[in-house]
Design a protein around this nucleic acid. Structure first.
Length: 199
DNA sequence: CTTGAGCGA
């Protein structure tokens, strides 16, 4: 898989600034992944939506925002994590939603319950360090009746190919006085993402 | 560590 081949593919998602296929220093063989810099964060997101999990050259490829080494340059990771619990309102009327696809975001989860009366907010739980989804989340409602109703009508509903496993969530007391850090403002106009393919 | 029951700083 050459960089020009990758470029041809990724332009479908938007502006491609650069493509760097990573090669082994000594063997000169492809390491099976590349860095694609898109013209905007939205283009990068679109590329991820379009190509992550898709077949490229007969192989399933992974496309995502790059894992950032130590503590530096984590601005490009912004869109991947965080901003999930930004508008999450906790409540004692909660549903535990399990069996979520790895790519289901908090927003996706919220969208699924959008038609349910009394919906407050939804939140997918992510690994603290890796930023990967843990495959479950919580959906809060205004009243216990809303919870019951949503649980009945939405349980087992397919979301991105997997059946929702709904349950009443364990009561996690709204202990933390709301001082959620506002770590926003990382405005980059270019965003990188990784593509794993093979030769 | 690319996974599949589970209950989140």
């Amino acid at each position: 898989m050459t960089s020009s081949q990758l470029t041809e593919i990724f332009v479908e998602a938007g502006t491609v600034v650069s493509v760097e296929v990573m090669y082994d220093r000594v063997t000169d063989r492809s390491r099976g992944f590349a860095f694609v810099t898109m013209g905007s964060v939205d283009d990068a997101k679109e590329a991820i939506r379009m190509f992550d999990g898709s077949q490229v050259g007969g192989r399933i490829v992974r496309v995502n925002f790059p894992e950032v080494p130590k503590g530096g340059e984590r601005l490009v990771m912004g869109p991947k994590i965080r901003n999930n619990n930004r508008d999450f309102v906790d409540s004692s009327h909660k549903i535990y939603a399990g069996n979520l696809g790895w790519r289901v975001s908090s927003q996706d989860l919220k969208d699924v319950f959008a038609e349910q009366p009394g919906l407050v907010s939804a939140k997918v739980i992510y690994e603290r360090d890796s930023g990967r989804s843990r495959g479950f989340g919580f959906v809060t409602f205004e009243t216990a009746q809303d919870v019951e109703a949503a649980l009945k009508t939405m349980n087992g509903v397919e979301v991105q190919g997997r059946e929702l496993r709904l349950n009443l969530a364990a009561v996690k007391a709204p202990s933390s006085p709301s001082v959620t850090e506002e770590n926003e403002g990382s405005s980059v106009d270019t965003s990188e993402l990784v593509s794993s393919a093979s030769t």
